[in-house]
């Protein structure tokens, strides 16, 4: 635990806390900006937020664990957000998930050993007419088939290998 804490640089968090710590009702905003900085919510950062805002640590964690946007673990370089909306479900999102799991050897919520990919099932992305759809680092891929999703994963992996 102390090892992990030592690796987290809390410096970038200071400006966020300076701007919002004293403003009532800003906990979610603070957590969102913290996640922007680190890619997830490291425990030492949560402790620092609690200290600076005076909000009890249990409550900070309570809010952080309530909302799906927040991650308590680091994610891979590419975060695959696979849509679980109704239209995607009806159009075969489940088999797309199976293909991704088979290709990368990870289940929902897991990260590949090389730290490249994380698979996350997410609520409706609102791209229902492109179902089944996924979003990787902000980019939407629609009308997915087993082959097209394999191609996307291979292309990203190849780009990283270069």
């Amino acid at each position: 635990m102390t090892n992990i804490a030592a690796e987290i640089d809390l410096q970038p968090l200071e400006s966020v806390l300076a701007a919002y710590a004293a403003k009532p009702g800003s906990l979610i905003t603070i957590l969102q900006q913290t996640q922007e900085i680190y890619g997830y919510l490291p425990r030492p950062a949560l402790a620092e937020i609690s200290r600076a805002t005076g909000i009890a640590p249990a409550k900070v964690l309570g809010v952080a664990s309530f909302y799906t946007q927040f991650r308590l673990e680091p994610v891979g370089r590419y975060l695959i957000m696979l849509c679980q909306g109704t239209a995607c479900h009806v159009n075969g999102a489940e088999s797309i998930s199976a293909v991704i799991s088979e290709e990368l050897g990870i289940a929902d919520g897991q990260t590949t050993a090389d730290g490249l990919f994380t698979l996350k099932h997410v609520a409706c992305l609102g791209c229902c007419s492109l179902a089944p759809a996924m979003m990787i680092n902000g980019e939407v891929y629609g009308n997915l088939t087993a082959n097209s999703v394999r191609q996307v994963l291979h292309d990203l992996a190849a780009k990283e290998a270069e």
Binding site: Q84, G85, T86, A87, A123, C124, G126, C127, C128
Partner: peptide
């Protein structure tokens, strides 16, 4: 807009 399958608000 959290209802899966609705995207009019977006």
């Amino acid at each position: 807009e959290g209802d899966p399958g609705a995207f009019m608000d977006r």
